[in-house]
Simulated assay, not measured.
Amino acid sequence: MPRSKKLKLHGFNNLTKTLSFNIYDINYAASPEQETQYIRYIDEAYSAKRLTDILCNVTEIIGANVLNIAHQDYDPHGASVTILISEEPIAAEQISNSESPGPLPESVVGHLDKSHITVHTYPESHPDNGISTFRADIDVSTCGRISPLKALNFLIHSFESDIVIMDYRVRGFTRDVNGKKHFIDHKINSIQNFLARDTRERYQMVDVNVYQENIFHTKMMLKEFDLDSYLFGVDVDDVSPKEQRTISEKIRREMLEIFYGRNVTRGMKLS
Results as ranks from 00 to 15, higher is better:
M1K: 06
R3Y: 01
R3M: 08
L9V: 11
G11W: 08
L15A: 04
T18Q: 11
L19F: 11
T36Q: 11
Q37F: 12
Y38G: 11
R40E: 12
Y41L: 13
S47H: 00
K49H: 02
L55N: 00
C56S: 05
N57F: 03
N57R: 01
I61W: 11
G63T: 06
N65G: 09
V66Q: 01
N68S: 14
I69M: 00
Y74E: 02
P76R: 07
H77P: 12
G78K: 09
S80R: 01
V81R: 00
P89Y: 04
A91N: 13
E93G: 14
S98P: 00
E99N: 03
G102C: 09
P103N: 08
P103K: 00
P105S: 13
G110R: 00
H116S: 04
T118E: 03
V119Y: 01
H120M: 07
Y122S: 03
H126T: 15
R135I: 03
D139P: 04
S141K: 14
C143I: 03
R145V: 04
R145C: 04
I146S: 03
P148T: 05
F159A: 04
E160G: 02
I165A: 07
R171D: 14
G172N: 10
T174L: 05
T174D: 06
T174Q: 06
V177N: 06
N178M: 07
F183V: 04
H186E: 10
H186F: 13
K187E: 09
I191F: 11
L195W: 02
L195D: 08
E201L: 08
N209D: 14
E213G: 07
I215G: 05
L222D: 09
K223N: 04
K223V: 09
E224V: 13
F225I: 01
F225H: 03
D226V: 13
D228M: 13
S229H: 06
L231N: 14
F232S: 00
G233F: 12
S240D: 14
Q244G: 01
I247A: 06
E249S: 08
E254R: 15
E257F: 06
Y260C: 07
R266H: 05
K269M: 12
S271R: 14
